[in-house]
Design a binder for these strands. Structure first.
Length: 562
RNA sequence: UGCCGGAUGGUGUAAUGGUAGCACAACAGACUCUGGAUCUGUUUGUCUAGGUUCAAAUCCUAGUCCGGCAACCA
């Protein structure tokens, strides 16, 4: 309990610390992460995961992974496995505490019977439409269902027959008997069991009635002796029902306590499962694991590290304020880690040829390059150099604007770890496009330093043409063009703000040391950005690199504002 | 017009009656064999109006604005 100091923690950790101090739960902390297996996890879920598992870890407690699988029509086993993988990848372990709400179906049924027996639940025959009508609206009380005063005996009989499959979907529903005039809609006799003749991914055809979230969740928490049940703000209005059910079935105290926090919203992306699914289904992206997606699978494939995500989540904190976090902060956290850890290599994303006129045709030299200036223990490597090279097309300007200090006619620059070169002339094709830049090198500057001490403003990365390896680079941009994609005119929807330039594919030239790169390996392409070998489509001899995040680019900024 | 939340720089947060701080972003400069990294500095904030108090972001009152809630979804 070392981290249970009073300050510097979010309001939930303070509550947990206070409960620990007062010994409310006998000194134990038990949390749970309760995903519904109907889609992939995204970074918003990661916020909940790190909170649930983090609090448990800090309090020497445990966090359960519980699949909230109470709706058989939406849920699938494949998502169960994907979710487990994501939670593990994020760095958390549930140990033996893997549960399913469906494991409790029998117990839940018994609790429902108990509610009926004490007159706190009834079988209602209202149709869906009538149900809605009877519920009323927020500003007006609802009215009681004609079924409300059915006898206990009759309720018991009907509920049993519901379970036995005597009725069709929607014919009956079990409702908690609470208060049809409550200002809280969720307390107006909410449905707690419905009939669904559907095959469940774990219980098969054993059941044709399934508990509703509000009924199953609080009871599952109580069954598992959860102490703190953390969820997002939209469940705030459900809390009175959560407490009511536990009280009604006389769950022993201390009972689990639901606490709500604000979900994560990130700029330039969407976070709802529905929208994410739509992007997948409509082909805007290649799948749940498309590297542009805010899903954990997507981010992992993109090359984001779990550590960077955890640091990011820690920095944004936990509050009840519903806001939008700047995705730049996430990107910053990724760069911060990769700057420390990623080996540097040279790769030219948009190549143009440079010919060094005074460099011998058949000469080859190996230049020593530092693998990571932030970590000298990463050592050095040899990079082959020769007369013909590739440099980045944008690193040359025929008419350089002010503050541009890369290559231009008559100008001298440094080739990183190699020589100073001066541009002598350019060769263009019939369309005026530059096909070759002719340069002169200074043999005395080998390694990149000039013995006479003369300085050069620009340093360019390069790849020897003869030794270059061709590869595919996928350059990603934000998924949407607007900070808040949903912010549209009447009649439009968020898809209108989809960024069709969010994926640009380039054929690049990479240094030969990259030839043995393995799927998942991360590098910094010097002066460009961090890249990760794609785990799905990269092949030996046909490497595919995903841009994780570009380097900060102050030249681009200067150019934009001038 | 109902109920439940929330409001601190552009963004995310801290300060729990006692100097409004941190991070990101932005801007300026230093340094640099990555226009990266690093370093230094700058700009920008307590929703409003009253009240309590020696002292209010914090407590009280009244407003304003924003979000959520009317699936047999979770």
């Amino acid at each position: 309990m070392s981290d249970m100091a009073d300050t510097g923690k979010d309001f939930i950790r303070e509550i947990v610390a206070e409960d620990f101090r007062s010994n409310k739960y006998g000194g134990s902390v038990v949390t749970r992460f309760p995903p519904e297996p109907n889609g992939c996890l995204h970074i918003g879920h990661a916020k909940a995961i790190c909170l649930d598992f983090g609090i448990a870890a800090e309090g020497n407690g445990v966090c359960h992974l519980r699949f909230d699988d109470t709706n058989p029509v939406a849920e699938e086993t494949e998502y169960v496995e994907a979710i487990k993988e994501d939670v593990h990848w994020l760095g958390w372990n549930w140990g033996e505490h893997l549960y399913y709400a469906s494991d409790y179906f029998e117990q839940l049924y018994e609790y429902a019977v108990k509610l009926i027996k004490i007159g706190k639940a009834y079988v209602c025959a209202l149709s869906v439409e009538e149900f809605k009508e009877y519920r009323g609206v927020p500003t007006r009380p609802g009215k009681e269902s004609p079924s409300r005063n059915r006898s206990v005996k009759e309720n018991l009989d009907l509920f049993e027959r519901m379970r036995a499959g005597e009725f069709k979907d929607g014919e009956y529903v079990l409702r908690a008997k609470i208060d049809m005039s409550s200002p809280n809609l969720h307390m107006r006799d909410p449905a707690i069991y419905r009939i669904k003749h559907a095959r469940h991914h774990r219980t098969g055809d054993r059941w044709c009635i399934y508990p509703m979230y509000d009924f199953a969740h609080c009871l599952s928490d109580a069954i598992e002796n959860i102490t703190h049940s953390l969820c997002t703000l939209e469940f705030e209005v459900h809390r009175p029902l959560y407490d009511w059910i536990l009280q009604a079935v006389e769950m022993p105290e201390p009972r689990p306590r639901q606490i709500e926090f604000a979900r994560l919203n990130l700029s330039y992306t969407v976070m709802s499962k529905r929208k994410l699914l739509q992007l997948v289904r409509a082909g805007y992206v290649s799948g749940w694991d498309d590297p542009r997606m805010p899903t954990l699978a997507g981010m992992r494939r993109r090359g984001y590290t779990a550590e960077a995500i955890r640091v990011f989540l820690q920095r944004i904190g936990i509050t009840k304020v519903d806001g939008i976090t700047d995705i730049a902060l996430l990107e910053h956290c990724v760069r911060e880690e990769l700057n420390r850890t990623a080996p540097r290599v040279m790769a030219v994303l948009d190549p143009v040829k440079v010919v060094i006129e005074n460099y011998p045709e058949d000469l080859e030299e190996n230049m020593e390059a530092v693998n990571n200036p932030e970590d000298l223990s990463a050592g050095t490597r040899q990079v082959p150099f020769s007369r013909e090279l590739y440099i980045e097309r944008e690193d040359f300007r025929e008419n350089p604007p002010g503050k541009f200090y890369r290559l231009a006619p008559g100008r001298e620059v440094r080739l990183r770890y190699a020589y100073y070169i001066t541009c002598a002339s350019v060769i263009k094709d019939e369309n005026g496009r530059i096909v070759e830049i002719r340069c002169i090198y200074d043999p005395n500057t080998r390694g990149g330093d000039s013995p006479d001490g003369r300085k050069v403003k620009g340093t360019l990365h390069w790849v020897s043409a003869r030794h270059a390896v061709k590869a595919e680079a996928r350059i990603y941009d934000r998924l949407f063009t607007k900070e808040i994609p949903e912010d549209v005119e009447e009649g439009d929807d968020y898809l209108k703000n989809f960024n069709f330039n969010s994926l640009v594919t380039a054929t690049c030239m990479i240094e030969p040391s990259l030839q043995g790169a393995k799927p998942g390996d991360r590098f910094q392409f010097e002066r460009k950005g961090y890249f990760c070998v794609d785990v799905v489509e990269s092949r030996e001899g046909a490497l595919v690199f995903n841009q994780i995040v570009p380097l900060r680019d102050s030249w681009a900024k200067i150019e934009k504002t001038h």
